[in-house]
Design a binder for these strands. Structure first.
Lengths: 315, 315
DNA sequence: ACGCAGTTGTCTAACTGTTGTCAAGAAATA
DNA sequence: TATTTCTTGACAACAGTTAGACAACTGCGT
């Protein structure tokens, strides 16, 4: 990605695309000609201009073809199925490692990320995460790189091997990468809208960012409002953007009384047509109390995706 | 000094400009001729006279081209903007011809940014900011777009026309753009290193991010550690990355006793060779108390740049 | 085991697009 | 006076375009 210029102008030449996807320009053109796996724009002079999304898709295709899937078959498959396949395949790293050994699995990426964090090397951390998201596809990246990395940092912190400085540096970089994902996915006119935030007194926004990125990858038009947001503000924002759903992340262990009544207030204010999805460690802990007030509780990113899917079908 | 934004006094020949931007005079003229990427003034005899703004803009463009963006496309992006702001200008307000001074459309950009913020349109806000940075160059962008936009949001908040949700959304996007700048300017071997953070109990990190971006644009290798960082952590990090300087941002109105003693501690811990620069609203308020303990206080981004320049010369 | 048809990555050839650099003589600058 | 910069047009080097060819490989039926 690195740095895209802006969503609609973010266009990369074949050379850059080849470098970032690990394919040769020849292959890139052959795949396009034979299977229409991508449809890059063209410059005035007729040169191909690939979007960030094209690069993601192509990297994913490369990874899957290397694992034995035929490109012809993959080309007929939707992006969604592609990512599902990626998820299934990523568990079992190929038994025969590639000769060059540049085939990173999710574990290698999160190890490299932790390493960069410990060295306070923000540039390297960013590079690692970006590569991971491109080669693995966003859903796999979130589940198997970002989450484990955050967990690793948390663990390192409790063991005393990772300091607050390390943690801040990593959060900053991860926030940036997740923010990038939020805007890489092209939003269509008809995309359902989701408001993502963290309710009052919940200052940890990583969960919310993860949720936002996951939703964006599922094709939602995400409005990300950050942490510690008063209920009336959430309501007003949902109204302003015409949201089809609201998702909140709650991680602090004990759910206080105020929070439950806050959520009740929000639940009521949204009206019956707009669902409220709540996730995060603390949400699972208190699932009963939350479901009883009409809030949908999800235990994992995967479950969150399912909820989004259901919801989208109803819209 | 090279960074002081005073376009009327600072005029540079091609040679100087070439040296500062890292481009050859040939390329400079070619870019101007082919893409109208700059429009330098002329001496009486017709020699090109580049402003500081031109230089900053050109060096940003050079970095972006090195990252794989085509100069033609980059030029197109900022060209669009100049035309657009010019149109809006002539249509809406002052029939007075615009003084080709430093605010060159910066006002239009920050107005557009505020507008996008009010509409909760993160994508548009991002696009506006990115284009502004390419059109104006990083320092001018920071001084005349980001700072006014933040100020405008603050003012809107106190007037009740901007809510917390708007503010959060904007902060998120601005953080991302500033992070992007940090990245674009990275990779320079032998660049002096700067650690940027916010001391304990100072949760507003925007000032620190601005400082980080400004320093990066001046050629520093910035390690950005975020907000609310304990003194021992700052010290340890400065040690770990081998910092040549530490910069802190302090915005909360009242400087408490704890903060002063914290800074004293930090000042002592850094040793005499590593300067400690502190900026932000609250720092100016308490300048005397801070300077007396050996801390350098800066009142503006520009002053911060000067301090960095001095410092760099000494390294 | 063998051959066949389809698949797939790579390559060539001829051409166009993009971009950095240069030449030459005139003019400005220090 | 010695340098530097000016302009215009040209050019080379590289990158990217199409169309088609080719060989290595696949799976499959015999």
């Amino acid at each position: 990605m690195q740095s895209a210029i802006s969503p609609d102008t973010a266009r990369h030449t074949v050379r850059v695309t080849a470098q970032r996807t690990g394919l040769t320009p020849h292959t890139l053109r052959a795949w396009e000609r034979r299977y229409q796996v991508v449809a890059p724009g063209r410059s005035e002079g007729g040169q191909r201009l690939y979007s960030d999304l094209d690069i993601q898709r192509l990297s994913l295709l490369r990874r899957l073809t290397e694992r034995g899937h035929s490109i012809a078959r993959l080309a007929e498959v939707s992006q969604e199925d592609l990512e599902r396949t990626a998820r299934e395949d990523s568990g079992s790293k190929s038994p025969e490692p590639k000769p060059l050994g540049d085939d990173f699995g999710a574990k290698d990426f999160s190890a490299a990320a932790l390493n960069a964090t410990r060295r306070l090397d923000a540039a390297e951390l960013h590079a690692v995460l970006e590569r991971a998201s491109i080669t693995l596809g966003v859903p796999v990246f979130l589940d198997q790189v970002v989450v484990p990395t955050l967990r690793g940092i948390g663990q390192g912190w409790s063991e005393g091997t990772v300091s607050i400085a390390h943690e801040h540096l990593a959060s900053g970089v991860i926030r940036r990468v997740l923010g990038w994902i939020l805007r890489v996915y092209e939003i269509t006119e008809s995309a359902p809208r989701l408001v993502v935030a963290t309710p009052p007194r919940q200052a940890h926004e990583m969960g919310a960012m993860l949720a936002g990125a996951a939703a964006a990858a599922e094709g939602w038009d995400v409005t990300y409002l950050g942490a510690d947001l008063p209920i009336p503000e959430i309501l007003a924002s949902a109204g302003q953007v015409g949201a089809n759903g609201v998702a909140l992340s709650i991680v602090y262990p004990a759910i206080d009384r105020g929070l439950v009544s806050d959520l009740e207030l929000l639940r009521g204010g949204l009206g019956s047509r707009i669902p409220l999805i709540v996730g995060g460690y603390a949400a699972s802990q208190d699932r009963d109390r939350l479901t009883s007030i009409g809030v949908q509780v999800v235990d994992s990113l995967d479950q969150f995706r399912e909820s989004l899917d259901d919801l989208r079908d109803r819209v």
